[in-house]
Design a protein around this nucleic acid. Structure first.
Lengths: 148, 148
DNA sequence: AACAATTCAATTGTGTGCAATAGAAATTTC
DNA sequence: GAAATTTCTATTGCACACAATTGAATTGTT
């Protein structure tokens, strides 16, 4: 049966995504207080712990953020001594981001965060994995249509 | 099999939600240009077209936004003559929001937007419906844990 | 009725997020 | 190898988004 009212808020996938995203941010906030990180800052560290020395561009590509967001975000983290920005010697257009000892050390505290998520969601993580893949496909479909 | 690295970005449900939300915003942006609305402004109108005369508080509850976000957002729409804010006579703490004729007229143009989404996602909408319900449950689980 | 507690909208301050632009550096084209 | 194009970071301006606070209005208590 087709939707009677095509503009009904609660029937919209976009709003379900929007609301879930805010719920995640609210959920993370108190859990990230021990690290003194905001959620986007936490995402930056997830990338850096995997790939130290990444360029600003590559970081933005991974997180789907542009330089207008990344640059000030990373600068705040640099001001706190958690990382260091350095222009690439081979290609001086690029700026590479390196963790400081303090930034690397944050990782230990961060391990508690995904545990809290797992606890909140319950289950064995299979349902969460399926949902994650559905969202991945959704993002690809939306991005593919955005170009055209 | 449990996740080898619990801090791997691409394995995280939170990031899948985060990225999908941004993709939706990017997707909507050009589609909402005909209405000259941002995505959050569009959400406000979805509510108002359903429930004209709603209070600022109730609007915030529906969209999971607080007064610090809603108040300036609605004021911008009022400045453009799309709606009108009026203090409730019975309870003067409350401000009710009423559509103007121009705000009501926007609805016609808005009908094209969900059609574009349906086209981008393909299918009969069943998969989208399932995904929407999964996200709804996810939000409830996160909010329930946020309180505690 | 008087006072305390609660509710609600608005404001301030900080941190994203993106469009548009600027400017430096590298690459391509000729 | 000089000029045009592209790539990359940074900046500016505008719009969310939330925490914390304020102040007005209402409700609850005695």
């Amino acid at each position: 049966m087709a939707q009677a009212d095509p503009l009904k808020l609660d029937s919209m996938l976009c709003f379900a995504v929007y609301a879930a995203e805010h719920a995640f941010t609210r959920f993370y906030k108190p859990r990230l207080e021990a690290l003194e990180l905001t959620y986007p800052q936490y995402l930056v560290f997830l990338v850096l712990w995997e790939t130290d020395g990444i360029t600003v561009k590559a970081l933005g590509d991974k997180l789907f953020l542009d330089s207008g967001t990344i640059t000030p975000l990373v600068k705040r983290l640099e001001a706190r001594g958690l990382l260091r920005r350095e222009r690439d010697k081979q290609d001086e257009r690029q700026v590479r981001i390196y963790l400081t000892e303090e930034g690397r050390a944050l990782r230990e505290k961060a391990l508690a965060v995904p545990l809290a998520v797992g606890k909140a969601l319950g289950g064995d993580g299979e349902a969460a994995g399926m949902l994650r893949e559905s969202l991945h496909r959704l993002r690809e479909q939306l991005d593919a249509s955005s170009d055209s």
